[in-house]
């Protein structure tokens, strides 16, 4: 996309973001992050480092305690969210941001197609919200089918989601986020339940889909080798701070080892799982 190359200011910008849980523990501490439209990056770091929290703040699901986040669209429109931003205002913004949850968050009783289609609820009218649940339109069905085909899941189109294996459900969750066609694709451990070959294929697909639309793609991965192989840029997170943010080729193995040993950035409190909704 031209706008992406024009570069400056387009995309996601976090400035000095901190985030405290309700119990007062600090999950993010002065984080700054730039993610231009069309760029790709992986978040790595030990568990409890704040990766999930960072992604949630990027997704405008959680509002920063201090500092601000800014999303600039190609047409120049700007969304800013900071401490105290009303959650309801963020709705239009969120429909631009696809998110793959670590624990999928699918509706187990619905069929796969319904879960995939639900990714586009943000742009459906009241009427089509109800109609597409009962009987999805032909175009949406074909679109969902072809997306699932690329995830090798097309045979499950009309299966109930809770009959699927963990890995299959994870791919449904990916499909839902891709189906949303957002300008920013965030993924929290999107391939944790997949075997290595499939994990690579799914990440490739997510990159392609994001690139096709000029969307930025940010994923957290616990598998550092995978991140190094597939992502051009690595962002190391530890103790709620950014430890490094560099092209992958410039990240040394020693740096990575230090990141996971917790050198320098000591306190990681594991509040990630304990905290907010």
């Amino acid at each position: 996309m031209i706008a992406a190359e024009a570069g400056v200011g387009l995309g996601l910008r976090l400035r000095n973001v901190t985030f405290d849980y309700a119990d007062g523990s600090r999950a993010l501490d002065g984080v700054g992050l730039d993610l231009e439209s069309g760029s790709v990056a992986a978040l790595v770091g030990p568990s409890g480092a704040g990766k999930t929290t960072l992604l949630r703040v990027c997704a405008a699901s959680w509002m920063p305690t201090s500092g601000s986040a800014r999303w600039t669209e190609a047409d120049g429109r700007e969304h800013v969210w900071a401490s105290g931003s009303p959650a309801s205002k963020a709705r239009a913004l969120r429909s631009q941001i696809g998110f793959v949850f670590q624990n999928f968050r699918l509706v187990p009783q619905l069929r796969v197609i319904q879960n995939v289609l639900s990714g586009r609820l943000g742009s459906m009218s009241l009427f089509s919200t109800i109609r597409n649940l009962m009987m999805p339109s032909r175009e949406l069905t074909v679109e969902a089918f072809e997306l699932l085909e690329r995830l090798e899941l097309e045979e499950k189109l009309y299966q109930r989601t809770d009959r699927l294996s963990g890995g299959q459900q994870q791919r449904v969750a990916v499909a839902r986020a891709l189906f949303q066609r957002g300008r920013l694709l965030l993924a929290d451990e999107p391939v944790a339940s997949l075997d290595p070959a499939r994990a690579e294929a799914v990440l490739h697909l997510m990159r392609e889909e994001a690139a096709d639309r000029g969307a930025a793609f940010l994923a957290s991965l616990h598998d550092v080798e995978l991140a190094r192989r597939l992502f051009p840029r690595l962002i190391g997170v530890a103790g709620g701070r950014i430890a490094f943010d560099r092209p992958t080729s410039e990240v040394t193995s020693a740096e990575l080892r230090a990141l996971f040993r917790g050198d320098g950035v000591a306190e990681s409190d594991g509040a990630e799982e304990a905290g907010l909704p």
Binding site: R111, T141, V142, F145, E146, E149, E154, E155, L157, Y158, Q159, R160, R163
Partner: peptide, 18 residues
Amino acid sequence: MKEDSRRSIDRLWRHRPR
């Protein structure tokens, strides 16, 4: 290609678990 998808969708619909 499109025709293929349509046919597959119809087949899957017919065999959907009920």
